[in-house]
Simulated scan of single mutants.
Amino acid sequence: MDNTTQDLWQCYQAPLFLLTQALSCDFSFAVITAHNPASKLLSPSQNRLLDRQLLREIELLGSPYRALVGAAPDLSHMEKSWAVFIDRTMALQLGKKFNQYAIYVVEQGEVSLVPCTLAGHDEVCLGKFSDYVQLVYELPDLST
């Protein structure tokens, strides 16, 4: 494993989830993005296209979902994401379909970083999901 991949894995372990409303942790859900597959930075328009494709896939599942933004704690990097109330297996399938290194899974209020396409890494429990949430009036515009 190279240093860049190891650095990314470390960054993934310090997420910030920007939400406009609190999510109930009474139900399990996953946080999934389609942005920047395989951690390759794409243009905003490319990411929007992938996000629309992911949303179509989510809607076909017929499960509840909510938009959010996954971010670095200092907001230096942000990605449109979705909290999707599906099981772990389905969430991993979606993450792999959109070539994501990892997804987040929330079970009983605890958030875990779960590898999808990134080999050589184990799932990491990060603690209480609520510790990583920041409520905002509106989600940031990621079109620039």
Rank of each mutant, 00 (worst) to 15 (best):
I58W: 13
V114P: 00
D87S: 11
C25R: 10
F98A: 15
E79L: 02
A30N: 01
L18V: 03
L75I: 10
V84R: 06
V106I: 15
T117E: 14
I32Q: 07
T33P: 00
T5D: 14
Y65V: 08
S76D: 12
A30I: 00
Q10K: 03
S76Y: 02
L23Q: 09
L75N: 12
G127R: 02
V133D: 03
A71C: 13
E138G: 00
C116A: 14
Q108F: 07
Q108T: 11
A22S: 12
S45P: 01
M90H: 11
L41H: 09
A38W: 07
F98I: 12
L94Q: 04
W82S: 07
P115E: 00
Q134K: 15
Q134C: 09
Y12R: 00
V69R: 06
S81K: 09
D87L: 13
C125A: 13
Y132F: 15
V69S: 10
Q21L: 05
G109W: 02
A14F: 06
V114W: 05
A102H: 07
P37T: 12
M78T: 11
A14Q: 14
A91N: 02
N36K: 04
W9L: 10
S63Q: 12
F129D: 07
F17I: 14
D26R: 15
L8Y: 07
A91I: 06
G109K: 01
M78S: 14
I58E: 12
L139C: 00
K97Q: 15
Y137M: 06
K80T: 10
A14S: 12
S28A: 09
R52N: 10
